[in-house]
Design a protein around this nucleic acid. Structure first.
Length: 604
RNA sequence: GGAGGCGUGGUGUAGUCGGUUAACAUACGUGCCUGUCACGCACGAGAUCGCGGGUUCAAGUCCCGUCGCCUCCGCCA
């Protein structure tokens, strides 16, 4: 080996077995302990930390070591030697050895840094502004590594199943429906815009028409909507599409992939096939289409008991065509009155007309139905709810949608307060939610696609759809969701591959032939070119990585995330551009006052 | 678009009912220290309390506005 910036070993890999070897190690000074006549440098690289010992008799190296601040970039040449027994550090993987320095080189001296990787509790805004320092923290490197293992497992699993990775454009055309687009102005065609894809949906369908048959891509997607802890404006999907398949085939392919992902990221062996839950059952029992099944607390329909209970509030809800559902909570007296009030409040917020509780105490029943509520009625409701002795029953009533939503809210709040929600990623609750409706009714009464407009209807509803008969709101679809620990991980469907079916769906959605032609003409032409039956799914990589890492924010598994307001704290994007650039694009901007205000308001 | 929380030396925090010199830890600088590993000890420098306005004899503290960060609702086919 010749001179230069090379190294022979990773710092973190040195063990007793290396004792006596002459090694070259390079990295950052993690910590320095200067005892005057003896200096310890902890040298950190990607693999970990190793202690380097420098003594006055080491000459130049000693002078350099004394001046080596944390995060100085160094290379160390020296011999690995065993530490004296009393000097062994059991907390360090390399704690049995140290490097006796022979030569120390300073490769780069840092300015005083806003924070050090060893600092705890640094504000996230500061971390993001100086992400290159933050990424040196082992936790961040671990998250990046986990994400790498995740995408590697995806590629291996899909490759083995015969999928081909194909890239699709990120500069494409805006299609209506769905989220807002990010637009890219065209210089060659002033006044026209590309759009960044919200997903490669139409391209992957055309790849099926194109005979690719099995496609996948780790696709960047862009949606201009407000952010959340689990939502960034640009994100990555495992985009999958297959020809000549039914839903079960797509699901089987994804399950094999997920099994590999869990195995290679968190070392967990998934049991296959994954459980299936119909959309209707998910809503009836858990009050959400993405239930967290790491805990039970399933709701039961207690409409009959409610009708016979004589309780006026329940009778009223039923008379208005509503539903009454009940949830048995094994609280063993752990839920305080205040907890119960909070659960009731959580349920009320979602639009249930009634949220009440019935509990056992001192050998009699108490409830929030009021003192006048007959004990037999409460007892009958408890029995209908399947409550065991000591369990508290929560009753919700109202219009079906409100009652379902309340079940979901109360169930989640109860699980949280009872500590039923595990912290880490394993054991996971991964399942399929199937049999989504084809349409749902928007606030303004119009039909919208529950999944997206290219989702195939259920076979039994196809004739009615084509004939323009029946109630579209009752049509089923071939859509399915993959749900992990209460998060929607992915969404997929068997697609429409017949032009007449696609046109019928557009018609019901209020998309006329001209508009369909204008927006989706290339898809309709494709379907006319001999389209195979096909279907697929898109799975959120960021969200999956977040859950596997046990993180509570997407930002922890992204190297360079955006802030909650969509700003990039590192580059300060989005930023104003030169007037010349705008002129070239034929764009005039009315500068909002906020742009200059943002500059002044920024903290130094 | 809406609601809430937060903003004080580089970093993380304290600062009571408005009151005199804004405190602590750490990082930073200088010196001492030969077995530490969150090394230790001493000394030093470092803040117009996010920004703008207002109330007051007096504002880090109260009021209004604004910017930023975080969380949630709306939104996200």
């Amino acid at each position: 080996m010749t001179e230069g910036f090379r190294r022979t070993h990773w710092a973190g890999e040195l063990r007793a077995g290396h004792v006596g070897e002459r090694v070259w190690v390079a990295g950052w000074v993690h910590r320095r302990r200067n005892h005057g006549g003896l200096v310890f440098l902890d040298v950190r690289d990607r693999s970990g930390v190793v202690q380097v010992v420098v003594r006055p008799e080491d000459g130049e190296a000693f002078a350099l070591a004394e001046g080596a601040r944390p995060e100085t970039v160094v290379r160390v040449v020296g011999h690995v030697r065993a530490r004296a027994p009393q000097a062994v550090n059991p907390h360090l993987a390399t704690g049995e050895v140290e490097i006796a320095v022979e030569r120390l080189e300073i490769l780069s001296r840092p300015d005083p840094l806003p924070f050090l990787p060893t600092d705890r509790g640094v504000d996230e805004a500061v971390r993001l502004r100086h992400r290159y320092i933050d990424l040196r923290r082992p936790e961040m490197l671990d998250n990046l590594r986990l994400r790498h293992r995740l995408t590697r497992a995806v590629r291996r699993a899909l490759d083995e199943q015969g999928f081909i990775e194909v890239e699709t454009p990120t500069m494409t055309r805006s299609t209506p429906e769905g989220a807002r687009d990010f637009l890219v102005p065209s210089r060659l065609w002033p006044g026209r815009f590309y759009a960044l894809p919200q997903s490669p949906q139409l391209f992957k369908q055309l790849l099926m028409v194109g005979g690719v048959e099995r496609y996948y891509q780790l696709a960047r997607c862009y949606r201009d909507e407000d952010l959340r802890a689990d939502r960034q404006p640009e994100f990555t999907q495992i985009d999958v599409e297959m020809a000549f398949v039914e839903a079960a085939d797509v699901q089987a392919a994804v399950e094999a992939m997920m099994a590999r992902v869990f195995e290679e990221t968190v070392g967990f062996r998934l049991e296959l096939p994954l459980p299936r839950l119909s959309w209707r059952d998910a809503l009836d029992r858990y009050g959400t289409d993405k239930p967290d099944l790491r805990y039970g607390l399933a709701a039961v329909d207690v409409g009959e008991a409610a009708a016979q209970s004589g309780l006026p509030v329940l009778a009223r809800a039923l008379a208005q065509g509503g539903a009454v559902r009940a949830l048995s909570v094994p609280d063993a007296g752990r839920l305080s009155r205040r907890d119960l009030d909070a659960l009731v409040a959580a349920g009320r917020e979602t639009g249930a007309a009634v949220v009440a509780w019935i509990r056992e105490g001192d050998g009699r029943l108490g409830s929030s139905f009021g003192a006048a509520a007959p004990e037999e009625a409460l007892s009958a409701l408890r029995a209908a709810a399947g409550a065991a002795a000591g369990e508290t029953v929560l009753v919700v009533a109202g219009p079906l949608a409100g009652a379902r939503a309340a079940v979901g809210a109360v169930r989640a709040a109860a699980a949280r307060r009872l500590g039923l929600v595990p912290e880490g990623p394993t054991p996971p609750a991964l399942l399929w939610v199937t049999d989504f409706p084809l349409f749902e009714v928007a606030a303004d009464g119009r039909l919208e696609s529950a999944h997206h407009p290219f989702t195939a209807p259920a076979d039994e509803d196809l004739p009615a759809l084509l004939a323009g008969e029946g109630d579209p709101r009752a049509f089923g679809s071939k859509a399915y969701d993959l749900v992990l620990n209460g998060f929607e991980l992915g969404s997929g469907s068997i697609r429409i591959h017949r032009t007449d079916v696609q046109e019928a769906v557009f018609r019901l959605l209020g998309i006329g032939p001209e508009r369909a032609r204008e927006r989706f003409g290339f898809l309709l032409d494709g379907l006319r070119a001999g389209a195979p039956p096909h279907g697929g799914i898109a799975i959120g990589v960021d969200r999956l990585a977040m859950l596997l890492a046990g993180a509570s924010s997407l930002r922890e598994v992204l190297a360079f995330p955006k802030s909650a307001s969509g700003l990039d704290p590192l580059t300060d994007a989005p930023a104003a551009v030169d007037p010349e650039q705008l002129a070239e694009l034929g764009i005039e901007v009315r500068p909002p006052a906020a742009v200059s205000g943002a500059e002044e308001g920024r903290s130094p």
